[in-house]
Design a protein around this nucleic acid. Structure first.
Lengths: 337, 337
DNA sequence: CTCAGGCGTTAAAACGTTTCAACATCGAGG
DNA sequence: CCTCGATGTTGAAACGTTTTAACGCCTGAG
């Protein structure tokens, strides 16, 4: 609609060459103050807006990075995204946020698109662990919340085995000897790792392996947590666990709701530990004990790592953060009085 | 790093001109099958990826739209975003998701950036209602969850007055005559509208205006809901409301938590109605009655409206959806038995 | 045998910027 | 007076596509 004012219109209006206008835009210090003012005035007057496409085409760079997220509706990922955004912003980069929604078709499409856009780099929490999909093709890629098994790229992750261990050790210290773990599917690396950590906690405490009852769920959603609650209550009282460790907070919230509805009390009848420590965990009716991951820092570090990819002597790094247990009411010890 | 294979490399490799390659990419039907195969093979072999910058520069179009969201961490907006994404995807457009985080500086920056990128259109839930900021400059803009007061652009909103009316009417029908409304700040249009609806419900039922106690909060976050809960319980029993209508679900969840902690029961001691019907509302310890907004449809419609902007005979439209009350346990009527 | 017309392909001109080498201009040092 | 370097500005060549008009070829009709 608009005749689209370009750099040469500005140049003509200011009585200089287009090269000078370009300099004002990109290296303001190199042009004489008087000229600069004149050019800026012309830009203002004509309402000129630089055309990024042309700039990119010529410069080869795009000033944009992307984060392909697994589930935009999960608070965990939105928090990670915030960390990414902050870091990107500090580096003067814009952030393209894409939601694969756990669908590897979508994921592939977005990667293709991003590559066509020639983004500077891609952060991704891939749908499948293999992530063979992510053809390198020259664009730097950093894995988020997944560990790169081969050394072909950087990754930022959290020690999930330790997280599981922390959670279950806490329960054992509170006197529990029959513990349920709720989570799944087992195809998810995180779930496997957290279970492994849980087993390790048992071993450390000298408890037998069958002290842990594993209830597998189909996904990590709230509804699955409710279902697990019903299964749990259905167990014969003699075998019923007195505590549950959930693979994420959504499951834990579902479990909590299920307990309340069935007239059982948390933590008295069942202690509950979640994972992720999302905001809603602290805000639950019974505030949830949870394993906190440094979400924002995860994103921030991933972005920073991505920025180092272009350095000549870059070596791929694998950063691993430590999770931390946040104790709240859902695992409070019974008063002895 | 990579020598970046271009369309002319492909052309040379396939023994055709670059125009033919371009045709294979954009109008496959116009080129002879045999040639097409040869070109496709060359593309595959060389690992060619079209350069969007160049394409855009030439074509003037970008195949990208953007949604500038007010708070990426609020489930309401992530659901709206999903609707936008679905519609965009169907139209073959990519979606640029930007988070203004209620900061009008960020919002401005993003708008500038998007304009430089020459996106096809912008969906935005603006930080301030005035939204004078959003200089038109040729890029179509559609307001989401806000009503455009002037006729300068399209908007998609939900009838918040009706929503408030539905919520409070429901409470009145359940026998409540002292009702609190929790929400704020009043600078937010939505909060004002929902309160207006609440008042209308009182009038319809022949109740006096002071049947509604308004508790203003500083934001719409969970913590504010907790604070409101404490203020509520602090009221003398004779004046204390028996029901509360919260301006959004986050407040309602906070309120719920506060009640539980103070030993009061929902809905027996206090009935609670939320707003937005986010997933966590149904998953709360006491499932929350809430006013549901057609979130995904909101986003979907906004995107579709945006697509019509370029049509020659386009007229700006203001779509307004009806909210719907979803009744759950938090307003269950006391059993009379 | 010629010619019209359809089909598939192509050469070349954009698109709006960045960049590089070259070019003035001017003051200072020899 | 000449040279030199510094400072500021510029012309023109890219960047990798899309697009338009023109082109050559072939077929079938006249």
């Amino acid at each position: 609609m608009k005749p689209s004012v370009g750099i040469r219109d500005v140049a003509q209006h200011a009585g200089v060459s287009n090269a000078t206008v370009s300099n004002v835009l990109n290296r303001p210090d190199v042009v004489a103050p008087a000229t600069r003012q004149r050019v800026l005035a012309a830009i203002e007057e004509l309402g000129f807006v630089r055309n990024e496409s042309a700039r990119q085409l010529r410069a080869g760079r795009s000033r944009v990075i992307a984060y392909v997220v697994l589930d935009a509706a999960n608070p965990f990922f939105t928090d990670v995204a915030r960390g990414v955004e902050d870091a990107a912003r500090e580096a003067g980069l814009a952030l393209f946020l894409c939601n694969s929604a756990s669908d590897d078709g979508r994921e592939r499409e977005y990667l293709e698109l991003l590559h066509e856009q020639r983004v500077e780099g891609i952060l991704i929490t891939p749908v499948d662990a293999e992530c063979a999909q992510i053809a390198e093709r020259g664009t730097p890629v950093v894995l988020v919340d997944r560990e790169a098994t081969d050394g072909t790229r950087c990754s930022v992750a959290v020690d999930d085995v330790l997280g599981g261990e922390l959670a279950v050790t806490h329960l054992i210290e509170n006197g529990h000897t029959r513990i349920a773990m709720v989570g799944g599917p087992l195809s998810i690396q995180q779930v496997r790792d957290r279970r492994e950590g849980a087993m390790r906690a048992l071993t450390n405490a000298g408890l037998p392996a069958d002290a842990l009852t594993f209830l597998e769920t189909k996904s990590l959603q709230v509804a699955e947590g409710r279902g697990a609650g019903e299964r749990l209550v259905g167990l014969p009282a003699s075998r019923r666990p007195t505590a549950a460790f959930c693979a994420n907070d959504l499951l834990a919230l579902g479990l909590l709701q299920s307990m309340t509805q069935q007239g059982l009390r948390v933590p008295d009848d069942l202690a509950v530990v979640g994972y992720d420590d999302i905001e809603f965990a602290a805000a639950a009716a019974v505030p949830l004990t949870s394993v906190r991951q440094p979400r924002e820092q995860l994103g921030r570090t991933a972005a920073q790592l991505l920025l180092t990819e272009n350095e000549p002597d870059h070596e791929h790094r694998h950063v691993k953060f430590q999770p931390e247990l946040v104790v709240r009411a859902s695992t409070a010890v019974k008063r002895r009085a």
